[in-house]
């Protein structure tokens, strides 16, 4: 099993007291598969993704990536897993402003020691980024930036891709184009995908869909 969540709970302090976002949530995703998580705004989709990425810790429960419980790891233990196994694509593109597009694409792969020139060339070609490789993030369009984010996540050939509204900042048409590229390249790389979105149409592109509501997964599959 690539990813398994067992009885994960998470709550936050907020102005109105403690708010429970996730409650005894369990979930499984096997390698090479894609899972879409839908839900209303603020329902905890992003939190779930952050927990899986090891950016946050659950209050209870276990999160196993390739059988290893990452909730037991400290920052030093988590960093290599993030670096080696997980590709992140966020709603904000979060490119590194100091680096060129080419350097952005290969940055994480280099960090992970898995730099593959051909694969990255393939990615940039597939994403239509060959012409902007020497530019800086602020010099290209939003659609291009999102494609760079996708390419960067895929560049290190991670086992698991976590995507949070990967096309949220793009218009419908651009969004669809990026999404199909994204899914196609993920399929090529053989990674598993956990994607959160509020859009049923985007969710429909994934093999499995789950709906998150009141901290629990609903078995619904609309």
């Amino acid at each position: 099993m690539l990813l398994e969540l067992r009885n994960v709970s998470k709550s936050f302090e907020s102005g109105e007291g403690r708010v429970t976002v996730l409650k005894d949530l369990s979930l499984q995703l096997s390698a090479g598969h894609s899972l879409a998580l839908t839900g209303e705004s603020g329902v905890g989709k992003s939190t779930l993704l952050h927990l899986v990425a090891g950016l946050e810790r659950p209050d209870h429960g276990e999160i196993l990536i390739k059988g290893q419980d990452i909730t037991k790891l400290n920052d030093a233990g988590l960093a290599p897993i993030r670096r080696q196994s997980i590709g992140l694509v966020f709603q904000q593109f979060n490119l590194i402003p100091a680096l060129t597009i080419g350097d952005n694409l290969s940055f994480q792969a280099r960090l992970a020691g898995r730099y593959d020139r051909d694969w990255i060339a393939h990615l940039s070609q597939g994403l239509g980024l060959e012409t902007v490789l020497t530019r800086y993030p602020e010099e290209i369009s939003g659609g291009q930036q999102q494609r760079v984010a996708v390419g960067r996540a895929l560049a290190l050939r991670p086992d698991l891709i976590l995507a949070d509204e990967p096309t949220g900042n793009l218009d419908e048409e651009n969004g669809q184009a990026v999404l199909s590229l994204f899914l196609q390249l993920i399929a090529e790389s053989g990674a598993g995908l956990l994607m959160v979105t509020h859009s049923a149409r985007i969710a429909a592109a994934c093999e499995t869909r789950r709906h998150l509501s009141r901290g629990q997964l609903q078995a619904s599959d609309p």
Binding site: L55, R82, I96, F107, L111
Partner: peptide, 12 residues
């Protein structure tokens, strides 16, 4: 803003 992506990419 500069650092968050590096951190997310797995730097302590």
């Amino acid at each position: 803003l500069q650092i968050a992506p590096i951190w997310a990419a797995g730097q302590r």
